[in-house]
Computed example of a mutant assay.
Amino acid sequence: MQIHYISEANSVLNHFLGQIRNIHVQKDSMRFRRNIERIGEIMAYELSKDLVYKNVEITTPLGIKKTTEIANELVLCSILRAGLPLHLGFLNYFDAAENGFVSAYRHHHNNGDDFTIKVEYQAVPNIEDKTLLLIDPMLATGHSMVAVFNTLLEKGNPKEIHIAVVIAAPEGVAYLKDQLPDNCHLWVATLDEKLNGKNYIVPGLGDAGDLAYGSKL
């Protein structure tokens, strides 16, 4: 697996990453969503450098201009519900992409710390021979991402696979490296320290879905 750590070079990305972690800024859910969206836009720009381009000619009012445009057939697929603002950021840049949505959650047994991943709702276009971008803000253990990935492969075989996350734990990165094909690309906005005893990312930011859309039962 090829791993890209985007925040290693200072940019406005780190400014937005700081804001989504800040407990005072987090109180504004609209601002949180917008910052996640903007992070998605920055990540889409960085990822776009790795795509395939084709030569085209554009007719202007004064002549012809030779340039390039994306040749990949893109499918954006996010994990509900936390992935929606990040998905929108990618869609702002890859506006011709098809879109898919999958629900996945931790099912805790007997209210304990042990859990399995439940993948349920799926609304996904044809991914056969296309470039799949799998999007989720948080990569903790990596089990949700792998479960969704395996579910999507039941529907077809993409030509290229890119996984984009905002905050990752080392344990999740290691799990993806072990479980996913070598030709996958993992794009990480920032890498955190570790998982705690409940498998939450530290220092992390809390529950991205709750911060974006409110707490759930």
Rank of each mutant, 00 (worst) to 15 (best):
L180M: 07
V166R: 12
A164P: 07
Y200F: 10
Q179Y: 03
G156S: 06
L191I: 07
V146M: 01
G142H: 04
G112Y: 06
T190D: 10
E128N: 14
I135S: 07
D113N: 13
N126Q: 13
P181A: 11
K130N: 15
H143W: 11
N196R: 02
V165S: 12
T131R: 02
V119F: 11
D178L: 05
V166A: 08
Y200P: 01
N199G: 08
P181T: 11
N199C: 02
V102E: 07
E98A: 11
E160H: 10
D129M: 11
G172A: 02
E160N: 13
P181L: 04
I167G: 03
L134W: 05
V165G: 12
I167Y: 04
D129C: 12
D182Q: 11
R106G: 08
M138N: 12
A168T: 00
G197I: 09
V165L: 04
A168D: 02
A104Y: 11
I163V: 12
L133C: 15
H185N: 14
H109E: 05
G100S: 08
G112P: 09
E98L: 12
N199H: 05
I163K: 05
A168H: 06
F90C: 13
E193G: 03
D192S: 01
L176R: 04
V124C: 09
T190I: 01
H109Q: 09
Y93A: 03
K159L: 14
Y105I: 10
V148I: 09
E193S: 06
V165C: 11
H109M: 10
D136N: 14
A123E: 12
V148K: 01
E193A: 04
T131H: 10
H107V: 14
A168G: 02
E171A: 07
E128S: 13
